[in-house]
Write a protein that binds this DNA or RNA. Structure first.
Lengths: 159, 159
DNA sequence: GTTTCATATGTGTATATGCACCTAATTGCC
DNA sequence: GGCAATTAGGTGCATATACACATATGAAAC
């Protein structure tokens, strides 16, 4: 009648925890950003390109801890909306460089107050402590160029 | 040359943080569970049904903080693999009750050591503190019946 | 009992996510 | 220069996620 005791521990599954939290939080942000035609994923993508400058698909994937092929699809969506452009790297025909457009920057900046609001509300809900843990878990400021892979001042690959 | 200071704050986006963490952790668990033909989502689903007993789609969705329609698709996958069955609620023709099958329980239990391993490794990586924060963020033991919606001892809706 | 409202679910569409496999281009080595 | 190994990316497939809309059923009001 009582559940399998050998499985009770799975109620503490960290994968479940983070996925559950991710779903709930993403819904919140998606809902808020909806008014500006953006979703959390696209907001993040545009923000990364705006702040970090044009980057290759692979660099973006690494920066966001996402699979390279996921970025291919996400960028296709952004391109369809006219938020980014994709062009070949002049120094490496294999590589494609993503760049945010004026339209993309406008959409991003228009959504900024809404984002700030959602961020503020969530921070109050979960508390500064938990927020800090979450950022630490994600590995620090995600969208900033990491020391090992600097590229802030280059638009193209160095030779 | 330097990035827009009005957007720098978005590097602290909690939605990005939780999604980034979710992607990374899910990849870990998916990879590990792959040997047993399960993914994190399906593992969680089966675990919830095994521990909490048969439940309606809506109840499962609420328990996992997922959209109802998401559970419809997830359950369809589980059903296709023969891990769960879906039948009409005897007392409410609108409702469908999901139940784990013997095959589903076997798959779940076979994957348990692998899950335990991944859980252990991740806990060591992120530390007990962060792990606790994450669980708190997700809202406690997710798969246990909540007080407001008890259903541990019923297979069907009470009248 | 009928009308009306609320509830439980299914479907269409769009996006997000990642693995397996493929192609093209670059790099190293000789 | 030429070939092998590496690297960047695309595509097919499966799954995950959720909103808008539609349907069916139960419940409540009268």
């Amino acid at each position: 009648m009582s559940p399998d005791p050998g499985l009770f521990e799975t109620t503490r599954c960290l994968c479940l925890a983070v996925r559950r939290a991710s779903r709930a939080i993403t819904r919140e942000f998606d809902q808020a950003l909806r008014l500006h035609g953006l979703r959390a994923t696209q907001f993040t993508l545009l923000s990364a390109l705006h702040l970090g400058g044009s980057r290759s698909i692979g660099d973006l994937a690494e920066m966001l801890s996402a699979d390279r092929t996921t970025l291919t699809r996400n960028l296709a969506v952004a391109e369809k909306h006219g938020w980014v452009t994709l062009r070949a790297d002049r120094n490496d025909a294999r590589s494609r460089i993503a760049a945010i457009t004026t339209r993309g920057s406008r959409a991003l900046e228009a959504a900024l107050p809404t984002w700030r609001n959602a961020q503020q509300r969530l921070t109050e809900t979960i508390g500064e402590q938990t927020a800090a843990s979450l950022r630490k878990l994600a590995g620090g400021p995600c969208m900033m160029p990491l020391p090992e892979k600097p590229s802030a001042n280059r638009k193209e690959k160095m030779r």
